[in-house]
Amino acid sequence: MTITDLTSMGEPQADARAEINDRLKRLQDHASDYCYQCAKCTSGCEAHKLLELEPHKIVALLKRGLITELVNSDVIWTCMTCMKCRERCPQQVAPIEILFAAKNLAVQSGKELPGKYTAMLQSILGTGLLQEVQTVTTAANATMTRDQLGLPPLSVPSDVAKFQASIMAIAMQKP
């Protein structure tokens, strides 16, 4: 289902709309209400070139309070975070930040994380970093480790238990 289909359905949800706007205000100065639907954001959108993301329609959904539609749509997970929409919007609206807020709400409402996000989060919890240190292959097909290359040991959290406890606490709280 595309966003266009979605805008023709559903009831506006004032509370959820206020929550996203609140969240955006806490994090930055941009307000979706100023969007005049010029679609300049969509014209440069990297994800639009390859997928179906149309950032001006994301803003329209928020303005109209169609939050369930926004949060449940898979298309919000296709943003490439190129930030062209935020950079170029003549009205200082930031569709990318609306997308981040919508994805956060989707996670908070218990929607399953797509793709590799769960693995990434687990890795941060376990090691402090997105992934464990990798053995790499050279152009000549030899394998090399960090140590063999003479690089110093990785810097990682010294007290993993405390580090994990803080992250778990954040995951439980309302953002």
Partner: peptide, 24 residues
């Protein structure tokens, strides 16, 4: 200078939980 104790900056988790990004 190499500092001990560092972790992920949190940016890749911004889609999941922005507070986590700020914290990290």
């Amino acid at each position: 200078v190499d500092l001990p104790g560092l972790s992920c900056c949190g940016e890749p988790m911004k889609s999941v939980n922005q507070t986590l990004t700020l914290y990290l």
